[in-house]
C-alpha cells in the first residue's frame, strides 16, 4: 500500500514491521508479555496517520479512541529517533513537538518506513522555513510598484501646487 508514494499527503497505515518491533518489545517482559502485546496489537491495527495541507492527524484505539492533530506551522521541534532493533527493521520514530506544556511529544509517528520523507515534509512546512524562492520576487515586485505610485503621486501634488501658484495672483 505504501510503496512508491511520491507525496506524503494522504492517509498512512503503519508498516507490518511495527508489529514485529512491538512483539520483540513485549517479549522483554518475559512471561507477562501478553499484557503489552495485546494493547500494542490493537494499536497497530487501528493506527492511522493523515497528512493534509495544513497539518497532521493521528488516531488509534479500539475501546478508547484517541485522535491527535496539529498544524505544521505550530511545530517547534522534530525529533527523529531510532534504536538498533528499529534500524534493522527499517523503522524510525518521528516525534513532533509544539509549544504546549507537556514533556512528551504531541504527535509521535512510528512504524513508517518513509520516516525520513515524513521528517523532511514536516520540516519544509515549519515556521521559519522559506518557501521556494519563486514566490519572493513577486513580493519584491509589489514593493517596487508602490514606489512608482508614490513618485507619480509626488508629481501630481507638485503639479497641483504649480496650478495653485499660477492662480493666486489673478484670484
Amino acid at each position: 500500500m505504501n510503496d512508491e508514494r511520491t507525496s506524503i499527503l494522504g492517509t498512512w497505515r503503519p508498516d507490518s514491521n511495527l508489529m514485529k518491533y512491538y512483539t520483540l518489545e513485549s517479549l522483554l517482559l518475559g512471561p507477562f508479555f501478553p499484557f503489552l502485546l495485546l494493547p500494542r496489537f490493537l494499536r497497530v491495527r487501528t493506527l492511522r496517520y493523515v497528512f493534509d495541507e495544513e497539518g497532521v492527524r493521528m488516531s488509534w484505539g479500539v475501546l478508547f479512541r484517541r485522535e491527535a492533530s496539529l498544524t505544521y506551522e505550530r511545530i517547534q521541534d522534530i525529533h527523529l529517533t531510532s534504536n538498533l532493533v528499529q534500524r534493522h527493521l527499517g523503522l524510525g520514530t518521528v516525534q513532533i513537538q509544539t509549544a504546549s506544556g507537556t514533556a512528551n511529544a504531541e504527535v509521535t509517528i512510528e512504524g513508517l518506513k518513509e520516516f525520513e520523507q515524513v521528517r523532511d515534509h514536516l520540516y519544509s512546512r515549519m515556521r521559519g522555513v522559506t518557501s521556494p524562492p519563486k514566490e519572493v520576487p513577486t513580493a519584491r515586485h509589489g514593493t517596487g510598484e508602490i514606489a512608482a505610485l508614490l513618485r507619480e503621486l509626488t508629481a501630481e501634488i507638485a503639479a497641483l501646487r504649480r496650478d495653485l501658484a499660477e492662480r493666486e495672483p489673478s484670484g
Binding site: 517547534q76 521541534d77 522534530i78 525529533h79 527523529l80 529517533t81 531510532s82 534504536n83 538498533l84 534500524r87 521528517r119 520540516y123 515549519m126 515556521r127 521559519g128 522555513v129 522559506t130
Partner: peptide, 22 residues
C-alpha cells in the same frame, strides 16, 4: 540560516531539527 539540526547516538540514534525562527 534557517535550521539547526543536532544528530547524535550510536545505539540510540537521535536527530533533532528546529528552525532558527523558533
Amino acid at each position: 540560516d534557517e535550521v539547526l539540526r543536532i544528530r547524535e547516538g550510536l545505539w540510540h540514534l537521535r536527530e533533532q531539527t528546529m528552525t532558527i525562527a523558533n
